[in-house]
């Protein structure tokens, strides 16, 4: 699918590291130094224990397909129905994404199937983390 240029993310000081990481093809999460909680989306404190001592960690990029819809109201910038999905990362957090390199059908998109991160450079500054079936394109 193409990307709507009007809805690209605008990084803030608290999220800039995530987008810098994505541009360098790394999926970055954060982990609390105090309670070890791993979390997403980014913020400079732990949402579990409120500690400000947190570290950026690199995720494995492995996940499972947790839930999704297939959007059939196709906008001009898209080339057909596309999935809007939530994946559960191996490290625990869930994130929204698109499942790519696979038919956008209920038969091909099976819940709990393993997926892996791929990086889609949609502009000079922004790279979106997307996911494809594990082991490459099917």
């Amino acid at each position: 699918m193409a990307v709507n240029p009007k809805t690209l993310p605008k990084p803030t000081p608290e999220t800039q590291h995530f987008w810098d990481g994505a541009k360098a093809e790394q999926l970055l999460l954060q982990q609390c130094d105090a309670c070890q909680h791993i979390y997403f989306p980014p913020r400079p404190f732990c949402p579990e224990c409120a500690s400000r001592k947190v570290s950026v960690i690199k995720a494995s990029g492995k996940a499972v397909l947790y839930s999704y819809v297939i959007n059939h109201r196709v906008p001009k910038w898209a080339d057909g129905p596309y999935s809007i999905a939530v994946v559960q990362l191996e490290e625990g957090p869930r994130m929204m994404t698109n499942i790519v390199d696979v038919e956008q059908t209920p038969e091909a998109l099976v819940l709990d199937m393993p997926v892996e991160v791929v990086f889609d450079a949609v502009s000079e500054d922004i790279t979106l983390p997307k996911f494809r079936p594990a082991g490459g394109a099917s």
Binding site: N4, P9, K10, T12, F40, P41, P75, Y82, A85, N98
Partner: peptide
């Protein structure tokens, strides 16, 4: 706006 909307 950063982590949901951009995915269409």
């Amino acid at each position: 706006g950063q982590f949901e909307i951009p995915f269409g």
